[in-house]
Each structure stands twice: as structure tokens, then as C-alpha cells.
Design a protein around this nucleic acid. Structure first.
Length: 199
DNA sequence: TAGTTGATCGTCT
DNA sequence: GACGATCAACTAA
């Protein structure tokens, strides 16, 4: 089917990686099942130069994984109930990462629906960072896993052409709001915080 | 359709 | 002791 994305992909500039992640596939092995989603919305967070980043004030127990070399998954717990997942970029010691905010479900929809619970429509399954984690069974235990392994990895998908990529400020932050580091596929139904009239 | 609010707890100040 | 890279349920109109 599709091949695993190599380490070198993650060792480039974080903004470049963020844009290139659109259209790529997230593959998750979950209890003998394979879940696949196509990435349609991301946000870049850049350690020491970005006040909105968890790593802005240096290394702590929580943000530890952001300082690892590119190609790892940084999962954090927030609002007392949600998990969000980031793809760590660049070489070890530079704390930058890309938050996965929205994916289009491709394989394993039945499992995703079960993990999300209740009667969730297909369009609400994975259109948000915490929704994606819940639908893909990503929790504290997955913090720090290597994306070059088999539990969770990224694979080459159909790239999103430049003209279809939307750019905006990031969602849900207070500092660093002037930076336009959110990238998404225009018009895709699984982009979060999108109004009906924008589709 | 837009705006508000409660849920809930680990992390850092 | 405050608050957060969120979500879903609710209210108003």
C-alpha cells in the first residue's frame, strides 16, 4: 500500500514539515486492527522562539519528548480530560513539533466510532486534536513512541497541492496569536473550527 | 447559527 | 492555586 515516512522527513524546518504533513497518512495499530487517517489540519509549535509552545520556558518533565530528535510522538494531557498528539521535528535538543488537529478517516471507521462513543457523525469523528486522539486510541502511554516503529507511524499519502493549502493563526492560544502557523486543506470536512458556509 | 458554560486534573507558579 | 494547543451540551434568538 503506502510506505513509511523516513527519519529525514522530520529533520527539516518545522513549518516545512507542517505543510508537507497535509495529505500524509497516520497509521495506528490498535488491538489487531489497523486505523488510518489522512492528515488535513496541523499547527506548528516552535520551542524557544514561540511563547505558545509548551517548551518555551525550557525543558520539564511534561515537555521532555519535544526535545527528542524528530520522528517521535509527543502526547500531552489537557483540560483535565483530553489528549493531543504532536509530531516532533528537527534534531535532538531543539524543541519543535507539529500538532495534528484534524484527519480524514480512511480505514477502521467502525473502531473509531466505538472509541469515540455515543452517536457521533462521521464528520465529527476526528475534526479536532482531542477527537483524533480518542478515535485513534492515543493516550499517555503513547507519549514518546517512535514514528519509525509499528505502533503508530506516518506513511506517504496523496500530497495536498499548494493552492489547496489554507493558512491561519493558531486555535485556542493566548500568546503568539500573530503567528500564522496553522495549515489545513481548504474545504475539507475534517478541518476543525470550520463553519458550514466555509465548506 | 452563535455564544456560553461545565467537566475535570496534571503541571507549573 | 490557577489554568489550559478542548469538547459537548445547552441557551437564546
Amino acid at each position: 500500500m503506502s510506505s513509511k515516512i523516513p527519519r529525514a522527513f522530520y529533520f527539516r524546518s518545522t513549518l516545512r514539515v507542517a505543510k508537507d504533513l497535509l495529505g500524509q497518512l497516520v497509521v495506528r495499530k490498535y488491538r489487531g486492527r489497523r486505523l488510518v487517517g489522512r492528515i488535513v489540519e496541523v499547527e506548528a509549535y516552535r520551542g524557544s522562539i514561540d511563547p505558545a509552545s509548551h517548551a518555551y520556558r525550557g525543558r520539564t518533565k511534561r515537555n521532555e519528548v519535544m526535545f527528542w530528535e524528530g520522528g517521535h510522538l509527543y502526547v500531552y494531557f489537557t483540560y483535565g480530560m483530553h489528549f493531543c498528539a504532536n509530531v516532533v521535528t528537527r534534531e535532538a535538543g531543539i524543541a519543535e513539533a507539529v500538532l495534528i488537529r484534524g484527519v480524514e478517516p480512511v480505514v477502521g471507521l467502525d473502531v473509531m466510532e466505538r472509541l469515540r462513543g455515543k452517536n457521533i457523525s462521521t464528520f465529527d469523528l476526528t475534526n479536532g486534536p482531542a477527537k483524533f486522539c480518542k478515535a485513534f486510541g492515543i493516550k499517555r502511554k503513547q507519549n514518546g513512541v517512535s514514528l519509525l516503529g509499528n505502533e503508530i507511524y506516518l506513511a506517504h499519502g496523496r500530497r495536498v497541492v499548494q493552492s489547496r493549502i489554507g493558512v491561519s493563526t493558531r486555535v485556542g492560544i493566548r500568546s503568539g496569536i500573530e503567528k500564522r502557523w496553522r495549515f489545513f486543506e481548504k474545504g475539507n470536512r475534517w478541518v476543525s473550527k470550520q463553519k458550514r458556509w466555509q465548506l
